[in-house]
């Protein structure tokens, strides 16, 4: 295995994040803090507890998930799209680097950034609301699994996109709405039965539910389903990536 190449790609991507610290870290932290101020402190103070948890604390896992999904996707998508756009992808494709190594470098860096960001948001949240984490190892596992899965998804989007508009299309028009409707700010038990059933078709529900379970031990759906849904999506992404590299889709003509 060409580990030097993996480290080089990983290092290159992390250096890019360091150069754009304001956009990579500060901006998501500020916007999450605003959610806490608006939903947690202002509106949340008038909302009764959900499953015995204060509303401010209840939304923390959902907000971390919201940031984790959008940042994983955009980091990974941009990471691979930009070399395609500028043409510098040639040197990765012409180097003795396997597809697995390319994915490890780009997706690993995107996932790392998201995990760091998730932990920073968690630390920020603890300044606003009292937090407890009942299953810390599971919390870290969910964090890593989700970051890796959606970074891989972002990598696919970055390869598929042939313009900056497409790069934003999926995160803005699909992922963000699904996350908002996936129980970030409410328990799906609060919904009317019909919408509750509809919500079960939203994959993000399973992610947020599982992540919230790791914090408070309560969940909308069984945690096993959450793991299965995330794992299933990870496998689907891996299959697509393998196919992309086998065919050279949008990378090689």
């Amino acid at each position: 295995m060409n580990l030097r190449a993996v480290a080089a790609i990983y290092g290159f991507e992390m250096a890019r994040a360091r150069r754009t610290l304001l956009q990579s870290i500060v901006s998501p932290v500020v916007s999450t803090s605003l959610y806490f101020v608006v939903f947690g402190a202002a509106i949340g103070s008038r909302i009764t507890e959900i499953d015995g948890i204060s509303y401010g604390a209840f939304i923390v896992p959902g907000l971390i998930m919201l940031m984790l999904l959008t940042q994983s996707i955009s980091n990974a998508a941009f990471g691979i799209y930009f070399p395609k756009f500028t043409g510098t992808i040639y040197e990765v494709l012409s180097a003795p680097v396997s597809y697995l190594e390319i994915v490890l470098g780009y997706v690993g860096a995107a996932a790392s950034k998201s995990i760091i960001l998730g932990l920073i948001i968690l630390a920020t949240a603890s300044l606003f609301v009292p937090l407890r984490i009942e299953h810390p190892l599971w919390m870290v596992f969910f964090l890593m699994l989700t970051a890796a899965t959606f970074s891989l998804f972002g990598f696919i989007i970055g390869i598929w996109a042939d313009g900056f508009e497409k790069l934003q299309l999926v995160p803005l028009l699909i992922v963000t709405p699904l996350t908002f409707l996936g129980g970030s700010f409410y328990s799906i038990d609060m919904l009317p039965p019909v919408w509750r059933t509809v919500s079960l078709f939203n994959p993000v529900v399973y992610l947020i539910s599982g992540f919230r379970w790791s914090f408070y031990g309560v969940s909308d759906v069984n945690v096993v389903w959450s793991l299965a849904a995330t794992g299933g999506f990870l496998v689907a992404c891996l299959v697509i990536v393998a196919r992309i590299f086998r065919t050279g889709y949008r990378l090689k003509t």
């Binding site: 480290a7 250096a15 500028t86 510098t88 180097a95 003795p96």
Partner: peptide, 19 residues
């Protein structure tokens, strides 16, 4: 086709590592 914000040293070293 070159990166924009990397230094000359970094980009040349990057290629060596890729190989």
């Amino acid at each position: 086709t070159t990166d924009a914000f990397e230094t000359v040293w970094a980009t040349v070293s990057f290629t060596r590592a890729l190989f």
